[in-house]
């Protein structure tokens, strides 16, 4: 009797643990701990699939023409390459270049100026027009309720058939959290599966002395804000972080982007002003504009010979992750 009871409770206990565990984010052990708290939004395969469907569905826009993927294409590491400034549904978005979406679980704040404080809340920004908050999110719920197969998918994912704003946003987050880029050549080297060439090794050394302070390994950003000496574009007058905090010390500070997948995410910088990695490197070596908020690491400028530039670029190219870009699990759902 006693033995039986112990056995049964043991089995129940184990199954409870395994059921609760669900899906985990998969990332290499040299990545830091993610910033996103999965406790409030535990991953499940159903929810991830639902999020993917929503991400690719133009139903999220007012006139059913634009989806998240219109500006964040999987083949561009989820950036927008046709336009230096993404054009779309609201004037604010029209001022900036769409960044690639990867390793979002490690970001602390979102957008070039950090205006969004949580991944869940991010989708509201493209979905809603600033001065008509709340209204179109309600519309989306109504539209989804009527569109097959969403009601069943929501039921499967969240165990209640009511489609809510909360659940839409949680599903979108779950899909985006899965967009982890960790299979580049750099990663293969880290995992001892490949070796850098001599040139890439030289570039790695240059990278560590000049860039790693901001574009910190292994995510290639520390996700803070900095002024990297870009001259202000007077047609845009985008003051970056200042627009959120209104602190003068934040003027012209922008979120440091990751350098993974650069070959796919051109054009570069918050306003997409550079089309090639070469132009970016030239900016760092001779284009830095001095200003009060310029990062101290860049005040003296970065000195690189033309050989060193090619070495550095060779290293940066090892951060391209074609396995990520062509991952069928992230592409348009068939």
């Amino acid at each position: 009797m006693k033995f039986n009871i112990i056995l049964i409770s043991f089995i129940l206990f184990i199954s409870a643990i395994t059921i609760k565990k669900g899906v985990q984010l998969k990332y290499p052990d040299y990545f830091p701990k993610p910033n996103y708290d999965l406790k409030n939004n535990p991953l499940s395969n159903e929810t991830i699939a639902l999020g993917r469907l929503l991400f690719y569905d133009a139903i999220l826009s007012k006139n059913n023409t634009i989806s998240c993927a219109s500006c964040h294409s999987s083949y561009n590491a989820f950036a927008h390459t046709d336009h230096s400034l993404s054009h779309g549904i609201n004037d604010l978005i029209g001022k900036r270049n769409a960044p690639g979406l990867m390793n979002l679980a490690w970001h602390k704040l979102f957008m070039w100026d950090g205006a969004i404080n949580h991944l869940d809340m991010q989708a509201l920004a493209p979905i809603n027009h600033p001065k008509e908050m709340g209204e179109s999110m309600n519309n989306i719920v109504d539209k989804l309720k009527k569109k097959h197969p969403y009601p069943t998918l929501f039921k499967r994912a969240f165990r209640d058939s009511i489609i809510t704003g909360e659940n839409i946003l949680k599903a979108l987050s779950q899909f985006q959290l899965c967009l982890i880029s960790a299979e580049s050549k750099y990663d293969q080297v880290k995992k001892n599966r490949k070796k850098f060439s001599d040139q890439e090794n030289r570039g790695y050394v240059l990278f560590k002395t000049n860039c790693n302070f901001c574009h910190t390994e292994p995510l290639f950003s520390n996700y803070t804000f900095a002024n990297n000496g870009l001259a202000i574009d007077s047609t845009l007058n985008d003051f970056g972080r200042w627009q959120v905090t209104k602190k003068s010390t934040d003027s012209l500070m922008f979120k440091i982007p990751s350098l993974r997948n650069l070959s796919y995410t051109y054009p570069y910088m918050h306003d997409g002003r550079f089309n090639t990695i070469n132009q970016v490197i030239n900016h760092y070596t001779k284009g830095i504009k001095q200003s009060a908020n310029l990062a101290t690491e860049l005040k003296k400028g970065i000195l690189l010979s033309s050989n060193e530039k090619t070495d550095l670029i060779a290293f940066l190219l090892t951060l391209n992750d074609s396995a990520f870009v062509f991952n069928l699990n992230f592409a348009y759902p068939k």
């Binding site: 708290d37 409030n40 939004n41 609201n90 604010l92 205006a115 969004i116 404080n117 949580h118 991944l119 869940d120 809340m121 509201l124 920004a125 979905i127 809603n128 600033p130 908050m133 709340g134 209204e135 999110m137 309600n138 719920v141 809510t164 704003g165 909360e166 659940n167 946003l169 949680k170 987050s173 959120v244």
Partner: peptide
Amino acid sequence: KQVSGVMGGDLDPMNGMYWTWQSG
């Protein structure tokens, strides 16, 4: 509550009490 992601009920961002272009 302002920084812990999306929540339901009275705190659902659908209630029109959430700024979308700048979190809060």
